[in-house]
């Protein structure tokens, strides 16, 4: 019996340019991971959660601006200066931010371990550090849309519906950069917290449950220390639920007293600013340390 012989293996080696820099590879991975986490190229059910959370985050701003549009400037002037002060906006949308961190962020990280593609990433020129950086970008950039855009939307809407738009801008000019700083802080810290917990497992469901349990347990301990044990607001530093939110509120500045008394939210005493800075810095350090340990080349 004669044996068949393959004469043409069709191999045409790539002759084009290969870029040495890994920057493009990291950006490409980040974009792709973010799109996947947001439901791109996946069934519609995977898109519901991110879209729903974005709508929840925009909800208060749309409501406030809707009221102003419906009532007109005459009536809306009788409302408290700011129906929802910027500093308290985060309290209203904290659920959406935390839910995003719990549900969407694990999607950027867990499938790589579960599908065993980590070796493919790390056998390229990309280093484990760059891999983690890409995942931070993939998680933080969409979260930034939730933590920053609704407040900017509210700001622009307030300018638009104000009797004296220039006057509003003059009065609230100082708040504008703080909205960015606060939004970036919240997105960055929650991203690191979400990724750190997700790095401990290859199962998204476990990561989500782990993140929720972590917040609940620390919140419960904080509540116990502050309430029954009466240790004061600084006892809440063990509560990981709102550390970045509280610090962002301090950065944006306390809302005017009349707005708080007359508005829908009451002021809650939060830990000292210096202690909040330290605790947020510690959270970042611990998260970076755990991620570095989980994504060492020898353990990949």
């Amino acid at each position: 019996m004669s044996q068949a012989k393959i004469h043409d293996v069709r191999y045409r080696p790539y002759e084009g340019e290969i870029k040495g820099s890994t920057r493009r590879a990291v950006a490409s991975m980040a974009r792709w991971s973010a799109l996947r986490a947001l439901g791109a190229r996946r069934p519609w059910t995977a898109k519901i959660v991110p879209v729903g959370l974005a709508l929840v985050a925009f909800g208060p701003a749309i409501t406030v601006l809707g009221i102003k549009a419906l009532l007109g400037s005459d009536l809306s002037d009788r409302l408290p200066g700011d129906i929802i002060p910027f500093a308290t906006y985060y309290q209203l949308v904290a659920f959406a931010i935390l839910a995003y961190a719990a549900i969407v962020i694990p999607e950027t990280l867990c499938p790589d371990r579960r599908s065993r593609v980590l070796d493919l990433y790390l056998s390229t020129a990309m280093s484990p550090r760059e891999y983690v950086l890409g995942k931070v970008l993939a998680s933080a950039v969409p979260l930034l849309a939730v933590t920053t855009l609704p407040l900017l939307f509210l700001y622009v809407g307030n300018v638009f519906f104000s009797d004296t738009p220039l006057g509003y801008i003059e009065t609230h000019l100082r708040e504008l950069p703080t909205l960015f700083i606060g939004g970036i802080l919240i997105a960055f810290v929650y991203t690191l917290m979400g990724l750190t917990i997700a790095s401990l497992t290859s199962r998204r469901a476990f990561a989500t449950v782990g993140f929720v349990l972590f917040l609940l347990v620390t919140g419960l301990i904080g509540g116990l220390l502050r309430g029954p044990l009466d240790l004061g607001p600084n006892a809440d530093l063990v509560n990981m639920q709102f550390q970045p939110v509280w610090l962002a509120q301090k950065i944006i500045g306390e809302a005017p007293a009349d707005a708080i008394q007359n508005g829908p939210l009451q002021r809650m005493e939060t830990p000292d600013t210096a202690l909040l800075i330290i605790s947020n810095a510690l959270i970042v350090l611990v998260c970076v340390g755990v991620l570095a340990l989980r994504y060492r080349r020898s353990d990949a």
Binding site: I18, S21, R24, R42, S115, R116, L120
Partner: peptide
């Protein structure tokens, strides 16, 4: 089975090409 889920064969090989700095 080390392959990314939810990608076409072309999408997957293209993604790997980008990871490896291939221009085209």
């Amino acid at each position: 089975d080390g392959l990314w889920p939810g990608l076409t064969a072309r999408g997957l090989v293209e993604a790997c090409a980008r990871l490896r700095g291939v221009s085209d």
